[in-house]
Simulated assay, not measured.
Amino acid sequence: MSPRVVLIGPPGSGKSTVGRLLADRLGAAFRDTDTDVEVVAGKPVGDIFVEDGEERFRELEAAAVRLALAEHDGVLSLGGGAVLAEATRELLAGHPVVYLEVGLSQAVQRVGLASARPLLVLNPRSQLKKLMDARRPIYEGLAAVVVATDERKPDEVVDEIVKGLLP
């Protein structure tokens, strides 16, 4: 069993929104590894970061990705930082990975500067830029298809994924 599509990208790229629409279009199930982590931990991602630390969150995230890649056959959305783990990058080899690319200004609009996202607590715009710059080469290296999401409706992004990735 293997996901039909794996979505990666930074916060605000539209992984959850596009993922749900894509799953509907394909008649497949949608799964988000951040949600899986929250279920296992019994608390929101933000609380895991604050109470248990980023290292613990990354352990839970890596396990969630490993399990989802092994048992999910629909559309899978990974948390923005999941690709930081080398083991996760290795597991993604051979999967249909789509990088949802977003510019800083669009990401800021979508995420919001008053975000509860744990890695964006201090100076969110600057933190988001650093995060995006650092992760971009990883996202690009893993992707079979790169889809720009700036100034586009989610349905337009789904159309491009379907055209670019699926037979």
Rank of each mutant, 00 (worst) to 15 (best):
Thr35Lys: 09
Thr35Phe: 09
Asp36Ile: 10
Asp36Val: 12
Val37Asn: 01
Glu38Gln: 13
Val39Leu: 15
Val40Glu: 13
Val40Ile: 14
Ala41Cys: 13
Gly42Arg: 08
Lys43Met: 14
Lys43Phe: 05
Lys43Arg: 11
Val45Leu: 12
Gly46Gln: 07
Gly46His: 03
Asp47Asn: 10
Asp47Trp: 04
Phe49Asn: 08
Val50Glu: 15
Glu51Gly: 03
Glu51Cys: 11
Glu51Val: 06
Glu51Arg: 14
Asp52Glu: 12
Asp52Pro: 01
Gly53Tyr: 15
Glu54Ala: 02
Glu54Phe: 03
Glu54Thr: 01
Glu55Gln: 10
Glu55Pro: 01
Arg56Asn: 04
Phe57Glu: 06
Arg58Val: 00
Glu59Asp: 03
Glu61Cys: 05
Ala63Lys: 06
Ala64Asp: 10
Val65Thr: 03
Val65Lys: 02
Val65Trp: 02
Arg66Val: 05
Leu67Arg: 14
Ala68Gln: 09
Ala68Asn: 09
Leu69Asn: 07
Leu69Cys: 09
Ala70Leu: 15
Glu71Asn: 07
His72Tyr: 06
Gly74Ala: 05
Gly74Gln: 07
Val75Lys: 11
Val75Gln: 12
Leu76His: 04
Leu76Arg: 05
Ser77Asn: 03
Gly79Ile: 06
Gly80Phe: 10
Gly80Ile: 10
Ala82Leu: 11
Val83Trp: 07
Val83Ser: 08
Val83Tyr: 07
Val83Gly: 07
Leu84Glu: 12
Leu84Gly: 08
Ala85Glu: 05
Ala85Tyr: 00
Glu86Gly: 00
Glu86Lys: 00
Thr88Gln: 02
Thr88Pro: 01
Thr88Phe: 00
Arg89Glu: 01
Arg89Asn: 00
Arg89Pro: 02
Glu90Asn: 03
Leu91Phe: 00
Leu91Gly: 01
Leu92Arg: 06
Ala93Cys: 08
Gly94Tyr: 14
Gly94Ile: 12
His95Ala: 12
His95Asn: 12
His95Gln: 13
Pro96Ser: 10
Leu100Gln: 04
Leu100Arg: 04
Glu101Tyr: 04
Val102Arg: 05
Gly103Phe: 15
Leu104Trp: 15
Val108Phe: 14
Arg110Pro: 05
Val111Asn: 06
Gly112Cys: 03
Gly112Gln: 02
Leu113Gln: 14
Ala114Glu: 07
Ala114Leu: 13
Ser115Glu: 03
Ala116His: 04
Arg117Pro: 09
Arg117Ser: 06
Pro118Ile: 03
Leu119Cys: 07
Leu120Tyr: 00
Leu120Arg: 07
Val121Asp: 13
Val121Met: 12
Leu122Ala: 09
Pro124Glu: 13
Pro124Cys: 11
Arg125Cys: 08
Gln127Trp: 01
Gln127Asn: 13
Leu128Cys: 10
Lys129Thr: 02
Lys130Tyr: 13
Lys130His: 13
Leu131Glu: 09
Leu131Thr: 04
Leu131Trp: 04
Leu131Val: 05
Met132Phe: 01
Met132Leu: 12
Met132Gln: 09
Ala134Gln: 15
Ala134Tyr: 14
Ala134His: 14
Pro137Asn: 11
Pro137Tyr: 11
Pro137Ala: 11
Ile138Tyr: 12
Ile138Phe: 12
Ile138Gly: 08
Tyr139Glu: 12
Tyr139Ser: 09
